[in-house]
Design a protein around this nucleic acid. Structure first.
Lengths: 219, 219
DNA sequence: ATAATCCTCCAAATACTTATGGAATATCGT
DNA sequence: ACGATATTCCATAAGTATTTGGAGGATTAT
C-alpha cells in the first residue's frame, strides 16, 4: 500500500468523526447524555424522535467511539464514552455560532438575549452559595436532576416553574441552570421569574461544566 | 414558530459545522491551509485531487465560515478564517485517534512509531536554538516554507532530503518539522537521516502550533 | 413456557453528497 | 477586443444518509 493510500485511509477515519457530528439528532443526543446516562426510549421521548431512528443514531455515535452502553435488565443505558466528548461538542457549537451567521441567528432566535439575564460565573455562584445568599434552581427534567445536580439545588423542571412560584423566596437571589449554554430551559425560567417579581439570574453554562470542574455536587 | 422548531433549526446549524468536517479532502485542505494561504489549483495539485472537486469542497468550507478568500489578479487565495479553525480540527483528529481504534491504527500505519524519534518539545527546541546546539530543518514543500517558517530553519523539502545530506552536519543535533502531528514528512525525514548516521529528532507538532504560540518565526 | 417490555435490525422511499468532465465566467496583459 | 490563465458552475452518475414501520431478539416477571 502506498503512502498516498495510507494518508487517505487516515483522513477517512478523521472524517468518520466529523460524520458522527453531522446530524442534528446526534448532537442533541450528546447534549442530553452529557447530563447523565439514559435509556434508548427515554432519549427518544426526551428528544421527540422515533425510537428506531434514535436507536440507529445512537449506534452511529457508538461506532464512532463517542458512546458506551450498559445493560440493566431489559433496558440499555447509553452514556458518553468520556467527558472530552462533551467538551468537543461544546467547542463545535461555539465555533458554529462564531463563524456561521445563520447559526448565530438561530441561537439568538431560540435563546433570546441571554446577557440581560446577568449570567453568574461558577466562581461567583460558589461564593454566593458559601454565604447562603442564593437559592439555586435546577430546571432540567427530574431524571436529569436525579442523576446528579449542583449541591443544594432545588429541582423545579422548567415546565413546572410557573405553577411552583410559591416555593421560591422573593427576598433572596435565585440562580437557575440547565443543560448548558445552548439550552433554553434556564433562560426561560429566569425570564418568567423576573416577570413575576423575583430577583433571578442565570448560571453561565450548565450542569456538565459545573460537574467537569469538580465543583460541589449531589445525587 | 414553536420552540421545538427553533431548537431543530439551531441544531441543524450546528450539524452544518459537523458536515463541513465530514469529508477527508476538506480536512486535508484545512491542514494545508493552516500552513498559510494557497490558491485553488495549488491546493488541488498539493492534495492530488481534481480541480473542480477541490473548488467545490473549498466552497463548502467557506460557506461553513471556516475559510476566507482574497483575489490577487487571476488567482484566488484561500486561507483559514481564524486560527481556532485549525485548533478545532486538531482536536477532532486527536479525539478520533483516541476513541476510534481504526483511526488509531490508520495513524500508526501511516506515521509509524513516532516516539522512537525522540520528539522535542517547543520549549526545549527554543533553548537548543538559543544555545546554537541544533540545526532546524523544515521539510514541508518550498511554498509553505516561503509563507512562514521557524526562525533560522533550513528548507529541505521532504522529497529532497536524501539528495541533500551533504548540506547537513554530522556533529550537531538536527530537528525536523512539518505540518503537524499527523503529517508524515518529518518522521520520514528523521528516519532517513538516522539511517544515514545523523543525530536527528522530531519536533512535536508542526509549524501551525509553533506559530500559534508566538515563538520566533521568519518569512 | 408465556407475555410484557425494550431495543435492534431490516427493507424501502426519499433526500443528500461526492466526484467527474466540460462549459461558462472573471481577470490580466497585449 | 483577444487569448491565456484561474476559478466556478452545471449536469450527471454513483454512492451514502435519513427516516419510517414493522419484524425479530433479549431479558425479566409471572
Amino acid at each position: 500500500m502506498s503512502d498516498r493510500e495510507r494518508k487517505l485511509l487516515l483522513y477517512e477515519q478523521f472524517a468518520r468523526m466529523g460524520k458522527a457530528l453531522a446530524n442534528p439528532l446526534r448532537l442533541e443526543l450528546i447534549d442530553v447524555l452529557a447530563q447523565g446516562e439514559r435509556s434508548v426510549d427515554d432519549l427518544a421521548t426526551s428528544c421527540g424522535w422515533k425510537l428506531s431512528n434514535t436507536s440507529a443514531q445512537l449506534k452511529v455515535l457508538q461506532h464512532a467511539g463517542l458512546l458506551k452502553t450498559r445493560r440493566s435488565g431489559v433496558k440499555i443505558f447509553y452514556r458518553l464514552a468520556d467527558p472530552s466528548v462533551h467538551d468537543f461538542v461544546e467547542t463545535l457549537k461555539a465555533l458554529a455560532t462564531e463563524t456561521l451567521p445563520d447559526a448565530e441567528k438561530a441561537a439568538r432566535d431560540y435563546l433570546g438575549d441571554v446577557s440581560v439575564l446577568e449570567p453568574v460565573g461558577r466562581g461567583e455562584l460558589t461564593e454566593l452559595i458559601a454565604r447562603g445568599e442564593v437559592v439555586v434552581v435546577d430546571v432540567r427534567p427530574a431524571e436529569e436532576y436525579a442523576a446528579g445536580h449542583i449541591a443544594g439545588a432545588l429541582s423545579i423542571p422548567h415546565d413546572q416553574v410557573a405553577a411552583r412560584l410559591a416555593e421560591l423566596p422573593k427576598t433572596s437571589l435565585i440562580v437557575a441552570y440547565c443543560r448548558g449554554r445552548f439550552c433554553v430551559m434556564a433562560p426561560e425560567a429566569v425570564r418568567l421569574l423576573r416577570a413575576a417579581g423575583f430577583d433571578a439570574r442565570l448560571l453561565v453554562d450548565g450542569w456538565p461544566q459545573w460537574h467537569a470542574e469538580g465543583l460541589p455536587i449531589a445525587s
